[in-house]
Amino acid sequence: MQDIKLQTAANDGPGQSECFTHDVKRNPGIPLDKSWVNGARVNLSAVEQRTKTLTTRRSVKKDWQAAWLLKALTCIDLTTLSGDDTPGRVKRLCAKAIQPVRRDTLEELGMGDKNIHTGAVCVYHQMVPTAIEALEGTNIPVAAVSTGFPHGLSPQAVKLSEIKASVKAGAKEIDIVITRQHVLNQNWRALYNEIKSYREACGEAHLKTILATGELATMRNVAKASLVCMMGGADFIKTSTGKEGVNATLPVTMVMVRMIRDYYEKTGYKVGYKPAGGISKAKDALAYQALMKDELGHDWLQPALFRFGASSLLGDIERQLEHFITGRYSAANRHPMS
């Protein structure tokens, strides 16, 4: 980022950014359309070529970069999904979600009164009550990973009750994992029914379907699974659990967002997108944002339709923002940990 020092000034803009209140008509799902699913075509080399050049075609600098990174930050599902998670750790994470950037930094950027917070906090079911409590008084949703995360191989009844338990505990978003074998065996009916049952179990809570793209073997499978999930009623389609060998990549993103566009054009429903795993640099976030903007447009840059599943991305964004303000490269210890 460039060495531009900004002065702070009073900001009489709205107290809350439009993006947080952005209302998206939920995707109710549609009947399974197998001919649409089977008609999906993806040329891997061409997709790679497109993503390779997309990141070199778009560059966001200075004030634009600061604003884009702040936007990215509001799209982060701040996540902790470890076996050794404790309530203390989750509370700290929630505090960070509420105040993701140092107050003085936001003031400098003229964003002090914008109620900047992350898109959500994402935890395991057990940690949902802790998170709800910690986030009380904010409108930051708690997302729970579910359905036998990360492998999704628990009994179906257990999975459904897991969803219901999280919703009951106050989770507003449920990140489910799909049964990969349904995709590998092209069993679209089974996948569709699975998603539909999850959607029912979610009720008002939003359904984010994790495809675990790193385990789906081909991009065509990714495209088809994306379509089936949307037909089944997903509010978001999400790449990965973060636990697969390969997690979010730009090519996989390209394939999934093209399916989102297809689905929107045919049905009129906007489905959100969440890349997860391996996005840890501010620069990566900008690349994903450019992709979303160019492929899907403005609406898909907002947290209502776009989330990053990330834990360390925030730290890099904080450092970049400080660098933007001071012109000096920053250090991690200058920013409160989560």
């Binding site: 000034a9 004030d63 634009w64 600061a66 604003a67 936007k71 003229g110």
Partner: peptide
Amino acid sequence: MSNKVAEIFETMEYGP
């Protein structure tokens, strides 16, 4: 200062 960052935050346009 101008509300440049705040403005861009809303419009999400590309800049120079």
